[in-house]
Design a binder for these strands. Structure first.
Length: 283
DNA sequence: ATGGGGGCCTGCCGGC
DNA sequence: TGCCGGCAGGCCCCCA
């Protein structure tokens, strides 16, 4: 599910329940996700107040009053389900426990946050808040797409000379952090760039177009997530709200939406991942 | 250094 | 109905 917009939506959904609140009890139902969970995780969470809930790329970072930070990655299928809390005018009752409820945070006041992850590609870790950015999973990440460090000269420099397709380059979290398969496909469609084009072969105009379009696509997806949060149809941040806006992703065989283009959305496998694109208007 | 492919897991969907 | 192959939004690791 989760690329940057989904993780940001989850963060915003969790904020009212988590930030400033105390973890009364942490329930850890298995020793590992993708990797072993940190030593004594339940003990290190119990009684701790969450002082801030941040996001870096696709990672959630919950700062605790113990001086540690809880890192959470949702992998492919991870979800954060909120229950036992008032969200707007709706109260979400506790559901029956589900298969793959791996970690449950029982908050003071009765709210619960349940981390459910069927495929278990997700991860959690605890580390000192000071220097959290040096965590092995975070240290090599490129700039945030909305940050000042992500700009046209930077991107041009990172793409120059690269013999990898632009599709792969934009999925490379060291170049820009937070994009996944969906939003790379959507961005390249809007930029009218073929996913097969080698990154180093892009002209200055193409590179020029990419920075604002990446931001535009991500901002629209966050806004769509935010609007469904306001409606409380998607308090858990599940995908679905933006999917109706996809112009190419998962739309193989559909007519291209570009006005005047008679092309058909095509699926091409690149390094094992599906690229959806219009061969007529993406060059 | 760089680029490509395998593998980790489970669930779902379509075809037979 | 059941079985099987293919597919899934991520990312680390190994190999050439």
């Amino acid at each position: 599910m989760p690329e940057l917009p989904e993780v940001e939506t989850v963060r915003r959904g969790l904020l009212p329940v988590l930030e400033g609140a105390v973890i009364a009890r942490a329930e850890v139902n298995r020793p590992d996700l993708r990797w072993p969970l940190p030593e004594r995780m339940a003990d290190r969470l119990t009684g701790r107040r969450v002082t801030a809930l941040r996001r870096r790329s696709k990672y959630l970072l919950a700062d605790l009053d113990s001086g540690e930070t809880l890192l959470v990655h949702l992998g492919m299928s991870g979800r954060m389900l909120i229950s036992g809390a008032m969200l707007g005018q709706f109260h979400h009752d506790h559901p029956a426990p589900q298969k793959h409820d791996h970690v449950v945070l029982h908050m003071e006041g009765g709210a619960r946050i349940t981390f459910n992850d069927a495929r278990r590609f997700g991860a959690m870790d605890l580390m000192p808040t000071e220097g959290a950015a040096l965590h092995p999973l975070l240290a090599a990440l490129g700039p945030e797409p909305f940050g000042n460090d992500f700009n046209e000269p930077y991107l041009a420099a990172r793409l120059a000379g690269r013999r990898t397709p632009i599709k792969s380059a934009l999925l490379d979290q060291r170049i820009v952090a937070g994009l996944g398969n969906i939003y790379v496909c959507e961005t390249l469609y809007r930029a009218r760039i073929s996913p097969l084009t080698l990154a180093g072969d892009l002209g200055p105009k193409a590179v020029h177009a990419l920075v604002p379009l990446i931001r535009e696509v991500l901002a629209e997806a966050i806004e769509a997530g935010g609007s469904s949060l306001r409606d409380f149809r998607q308090a858990n941040g599940e995908l679905g709200y933006f999917s109706k806006h996809f112009q190419v992703y998962d739309r193989e065989g559909d007519p291209c939406e570009t006005p005047g283009c008679a092309g058909t959305v095509t699926r091409t496998v690149q390094s094992g991942r599906s690229s959806f694109w219009c061969p007529s208007c993406q060059r």
